[in-house]
Design a binder for these strands. Sequence first.
DNA 1: GACAGGGTCCATACGATGTAAACACGTCCG
DNA 2: CGGACGTGTTTACATCGTATGGACCCTGTC
Lengths: 238, 238
Amino acid sequence: MVDGEPTGERAGATRRRPGLSRAAVLDAALELVDRGGLAQLSMRRLGASLQVEAMAIYRYVRSRDALLDGLVDRVMDQLYADPAVLLQEGDDWADFLRRVADGVRRVARQHPQLFPLIATRPPAAPWVRPPLRSLRWVEGFLTGLQSRGFSEDGAIYAYRAFASFLVGHLLLEVSAKGVDPVPTEPTGPPPPDVDLSAYPELQRLAPRLAVEDLDEEFAHGLEDLLERIGERARLARP
Amino acid sequence: MVDGEPTGERAGATRRRPGLSRAAVLDAALELVDRGGLAQLSMRRLGASLQVEAMAIYRYVRSRDALLDGLVDRVMDQLYADPAVLLQEGDDWADFLRRVADGVRRVARQHPQLFPLIATRPPAAPWVRPPLRSLRWVEGFLTGLQSRGFSEDGAIYAYRAFASFLVGHLLLEVSAKGVDPVPTEPTGPPPPDVDLSAYPELQRLAPRLAVEDLDEEFAHGLEDLLERIGERARLARP
DNA sequence: GACAGGGTCCATACGATGTAAACACGTCCG
DNA sequence: CGGACGTGTTTACATCGTATGGACCCTGTC
């Protein structure tokens, strides 16, 4: 049983493989999810895409759930590392929030299949009210605002309002782009459009509901939110 | 094989069972999900809870996914049937939206395990921008607003802003309540609280982040939103 | 150079899952 | 009485997550 190539590969295991790593695993998983959706992410498939048996993955990840958490954290953390997002010396808090919002939105559109998880997975610290994952991120947010003159209450309020605004908008934005369809078809024909005859108003307004001014709407909502946050901050710290 | 009771029941099938029905299936599924979470909803378990073999369920539901969609629709539709939510003759649009918001929030808290699905599942008509499921519901929303003097654009804008506000707030609210934990423990001890030493600001503000003034915050955000919607409507229809 | 130790990956196995297909039974209509 | 039909059961299969134990390679020590 020393030779004879049972898997079609040189059975001799580790040979000159670049070697797995947690990062490699996460990246491969992320790619699987991005095209194909969450359902495509099985340990065996992930293994195959890394040219490795499924069980090898467990060296780098405790379980499939942990893998998912890892994905979420990785994506969020890479956002945190994005220089275009970090708060910079010269800008005020509103600029900071705008940049963060843009960054998160970019993440949502890059990984639409993953985003629902980001908004949905039980967070590491559930008592952090709006649990936007990545504690590091929350920390940065809070200190960032406070260093920009926010009171503690103001920062907390801002964090909550901001997080829920982002999640709400982006989740809907993402779920509107066909997120779930089976991956066998790269982009098969959309499901045979539903019968709308029972919903006249919906039918009549359909074109306009489908309209794509999401950019404008997002921006508008964000400015609105910033104004609200600013007001509140002013109240809390006269 | 004609007798001998393989399942512990009278094998003779249909006998005097109340008989399954789509409604019964959905109700049982909903109960399974409510206590135990989505992961507990397997066809076999659902079958068992209906005293039926798993495959019997497929007479009433095309697949597990369809089951989930059915759950979402059922919950949303029952909201639509709620007399406390329907718009009534005397009230203006703001009252209507307030009541809808309360209704959806009630749903979210009654079925916290299901709510992420509501916000997440690919909608029947993906082109309806914020896809709040239940087309019937959207229809009611649009006609309701328009009959209250909203322009078409105003109604559409209101729908979008309203839906994303609701989803954002409620999703975070729900996911903060431990949603996912394994169901074996009715309410086991919360996961061994994360180590926060790396995040001083977070640690310092933790008590306040955990604070439970969600009611107030929700109400505040809602009023704010209503104001914004009203403004926009006024612009569109001078 | 030999050899022990440990890290990495493989092979195998088990129970659970979603669901297709064929079948059994009870009811009702002719 | 006989078939059609609807409802639930049986059996089967592919796939999943993962526990366990063994095979291989690399490295460090003598």
